[in-house]
Amino acid sequence: MDDTDGLLARTTERLLAEQVDDAAMRAAASGLWLEQAWSAAAELGLPLAMVEGEQGFGVALSDGFALIRLLGSRAIPLPLAETMIANLLLARAGLPVAEGVVALIPAAAGVRLDRQGEGWRARGVADRIAWGRNAAALVVEGDGRIALLTSGFEVSAAGTNLAQMPRDQLTIDGAAQVASWPGLTLLEAGALVRAVAAAGAMETLVQLCTTHVVERTQFGRALSGFQVVQHALARLASEAAAAAAAADLAVDAFVASAADAGLAIAAARSRVGEAVGVATGIAHQLHGAMGFTEEHRLHWFTTALWSWRDEFGSAGWWTRHLGAAMLARPKAAYWPTVTAV
């Protein structure tokens, strides 16, 4: 299904506006699970939106990532993006899609997949898993395989990221359905989701700042009338544009199953990570002290960005990863690689 008329996007936006208002954002930050909002999103079909065939809704992948960007632009405190991508990968691996919240566990978490009789068992401890406490299922990667668990895991330590979104330690020891997995790693898939969401949140920073400097008056005129403010906002906007472009590049590579999709994702995470530092700094400077309060909405976006840029691999790690890959190729291959990504 092509969302060419934007119907799904508009419906999702309306749903999010109704279900995740400012009160809900504050409730989520205090540790509450937004059950009503999750149920409404599930009823709309978002968790299965990107799954092709009879199991899902088969929304074009590019439209699916546009939804993830939309979720990011509102810093929605629900594991919708993770669940959308997890179900897509499950379906691609030929495994059944999952009911409810699905958590992604990349190979780097060190969870082992071992044969047990006719089947498989997953064992290990995975740290900082998004909404681990709410997960009904896990997608675990290891040794070139991907596994689905629907039981046999529990929260052994609760935690959050800087935006108060749950990041829990899970202790895993359960039977798993396993398939071989030649595709992008879960780390890459998760990293891509964060890059796209961050691009959306940075667009919101531009909107918040633009509104603020036009409305706020000091020294008898709007802040937007000061050239130094105009130039700061121009720089923020340019960083947001660069982040969006880098994320789009990675999405296109993912959608096309390009050979260099991993490089495109690494580049996106590196560029987005750098943009986050500049953009959040400018956004807070422009908002002054009022933007530094819990009451103001700005921190929902800046705190999420400060966490997202280093989840599923830190920006620094992705940057070195990209650099090492480029330096492993001959000098003559540098430019051809740039044009091929």
Binding site: A243, A246, S270, R320, L327
Partner: peptide
Amino acid sequence: AQAAIGRLTAHLLA
């Protein structure tokens, strides 16, 4: 070196 080339490449691609 890897961090520098990675960063420059990410900028170039964007």
